[in-house]
């Protein structure tokens, strides 16, 4: 997994709560047996007007120009700003793969659903939880900049070691992250490798477990 430390990126606002993983990557694309190829179908039912399928190429699709990610000014954004309970529903890790492949490196929301949040750390997508009031502020500031229409962009600097997001005006907002998740992300850890180094402990556990609950081993 790719390590994450600091980044600066432009922000796309997705002003919806409870965005579920069925929306992030609809089921018809889960038929793939690969880890790649999901970026083109991120938010498929919102980005396109016609129904997508694995056989259809993105060039044949009818684009929904009203959807935020299709607007000119949000091309090439790498931070997604959104509302509470992002990533709820299905456990599909394809949702995280799709966000990363599309170009997002970081998602900022007031809260995330558990399985999605967890899947982020397995792939190097940084989910940042910020208080509702900061999220609200950012949405408002982005709207203001948009209304100026002078091509200004809204960028954030994300500093994982310092646990801080810096706004365009230079004001910092600190965020909480569990130390274990932070370490995993900073070091881009191969978790399987780490667990396998505990082989003796796992074997010893199995022995105790078998003595206590032999029916699990027969």
């Amino acid at each position: 997994m790719k390590a994450f430390s600091k980044m600066t990126g432009r922000v796309a606002p997705l002003d919806r709560a409870n965005v579920d993983t069925d929306q992030i990557i609809p089921k018809q694309f889960l038929k793939s047996i690969k880890r790649t190829g999901f970026g083109d179908n991120l938010f498929d039912a919102w980005r396109f007007l016609d129904e997508g399928s694995m056989e259809k190429s993105p060039n044949e699709r009818q684009i929904n120009f009203n959807f935020v990610l299709n607007q000119e000014r949000y091309q090439g954004t790498s931070i997604l700003l959104t509302r509470s309970n992002f990533g709820c529903g299905s456990s599909r890790e394809h949702a995280v793969w799709a966000l990363l492949e599309y170009g997002f490196e970081c998602v900022i929301a007031p809260s995330f659903a558990d399985i999605f949040y967890n899947n982020c750390f397995k792939n190097g997508l940084l989910p940042i939880v910020l208080e509702e009031k900061y999220i609200e502020e950012m949405f408002t500031e982005m709207k203001r900049i948009e209304s100026l229409g002078d091509g200004q962009v809204y960028s954030l600097m994300v500093d994982l070691p310092g646990q801080c997001v810096t706004k365009p005006d230079g004001s910092p907002i600190s965020f909480e992250i569990k130390p274990d998740n932070k370490t995993t992300m900073l070091e881009g850890l191969d978790e399987i490798g780490t667990t396998l180094r505990m082989q003796p402990a796992i074997k010893a556990f199995e022995k105790r477990h078998k003595a206590a609950q032999p029916w699990l081993f027969s």
Binding site: S91, R92, E93, I115, N118, K122, D180, E191, T195, L196
Partner: peptide, 22 residues
């Protein structure tokens, strides 16, 4: 518990799941 695909691979390889207590 439901898990993601990376965790499916992790459980296959190690019989363990890495997580924090809820």
């Amino acid at each position: 518990q439901g898990i993601g695909t990376s965790e499916v691979e992790h459980v296959l390889a190690t019989q363990c799941l890495v997580q924090s207590k809820s």
